[in-house]
Design a protein around this nucleic acid. Structure first.
Lengths: 151, 151
DNA sequence: CTCATACCTCAAGTTCGCTTGAGGTCAAGC
DNA sequence: GCTTGACCTCAAGCGAACTTGAGGTATGAG
C-alpha cells in the first residue's frame, strides 16, 4: 500500500518550512490529514503543502488556528482543491483582511486626531474608546484583533 | 498622608475599563505606578488612566506589553505628561502602525495575484513566501505581526 | 547484522496576558 | 460592635501555538 508519491513528515516539514512537531500538531488540530504506512509512519499527500501555506498565510492575517481551520474546512480534504475552491476561499479572506486593515487605519488616524486634541484620557477619545465591549472574553492571551466585529 | 485626589484601584478599573486584577498586573509589569495608604492600599494618580489608555491602544496595534512598556518609559512617570511628550511618542506609533498596515496590504494584494495564478504551493508565491525567516522564535504563542521587521 | 537516521507516542514545559480562588485586612455605615 | 464591601497577597489556572524531552520502533545503507 505504501505509495511512493506520498511524503514522509520530514519532507513535509522541510518543504513547508515548519518544524516536524508542528506538522504533527497541525494534524492533531485537523488542519491536515495523513495516512499511515504498514509501519505506522505518517505519509502526506502533496497538497498538504498548500494547506500549510494557507495556515501560515492566515496567521499573518492575525487569524487563530481555529478560524483558519474553518476556512480550510470549505476546501476538499481528500483531493487537491480546484482553482474555483481557492478563489472562493481567498475572496472571503481578502474581504476580511480589507476590513482589518481599515480598522487599523481608523485607529491610527484616531491616534493623530487624539494627539491633536490632547484628549487621550477622555471617554470620547476615538483611540481610548474605539470598541467599548470590554473584557468579557475569558482568560488566555488577548489577540489582535480581538474579533472581526467592525466593518 | 492619604490624599483625596488619588484614586483607589476599583475606581481606576471602572474608569479605564479593565478589571481590578488587570490593574495590579499592569503595575507589576511596571506599566503604571501607585503609592500606598497607611493601610497598605494602592492609590493611583489620575494620569495612570491615560497610561492604561495607551496600553489598550498599543494592544490594538498588535504590540506586546513589553514593547508598550518601552514606549511608556519615554513618558514621565511622576508627573502628567505634556502635550509634547504625547506627540513624540504617538508620532513614533503612527509610523509603526503605517508600516504594519502596508505590510498587511502587501500580503492581501499578494493573495489576489496568487489566486489569479493558482500558485499557492510554489516557493515563489508572494503569500507563501512573504518573509522567509521561519520559526527560530522559540516557544510561546506566535504573535501578529511576528515583528516589525519590514519597512 | 549493525548502525544511523528518521520516525513514533506521550508528557511536560514555555510565553503571553491575563483570570480565579483562597484566605485575610481595611473602612464606613448602622 | 458588627456587618458589608472594597481592598490586600500569593498561588494556581487557562488558552494559544508550539517546543522539548524521554523512551521506543522503522527503514535503509553498508
Amino acid at each position: 500500500m505504501d505509495r511512493l508519491d506520498l511524503l514522509p513528515i520530514g519532507e513535509v516539514a522541510r518543504r513547508s518550512g515548519v518544524s516536524v512537531p508542528t506538522v504533527r500538531f497541525y494534524e492533531e488540530r485537523g488542519l491536515i490529514t495523513s495516512v499511515r504506512t504498514t509501519g505506522n509512519q505518517r505519509r502526506f499527500e502533496r497538497h498538504v503543502l498548500r494547506r500549510i501555506a494557507v495556515v501560515r498565510a492566515g496567521q499573518r492575517f492575525g487569524m487563530g488556528l481555529a478560524e483558519i481551520g474553518e476556512a480550510l474546512a470549505t476546501l476538499p480534504a481528500d483531493h487537491p482543491p480546484t482553482k474555483r475552491d481557492w478563489v472562493r476561499m481567498s475572496s472571503r479572506w481578502h474581504a476580511l483582511l480589507t476590513a482589518r486593515i481599515e480598522a487599523m487605519e481608523r485607529v491610527r488616524d484616531g491616534l493623530s486626531s487624539c494627539i491633536g486634541c490632547g484628549c487621550l484620557s477622555l471617554r470620547s477619545c476615538p483611540v481610548y474608546n474605539h470598541d467599548d465591549e470590554l473584557a468579557a472574553e475569558g482568560p488566555g492571551p488577548r489577540r489582535w484583533p480581538p474579533a472581526a466585529r467592525d466593518a
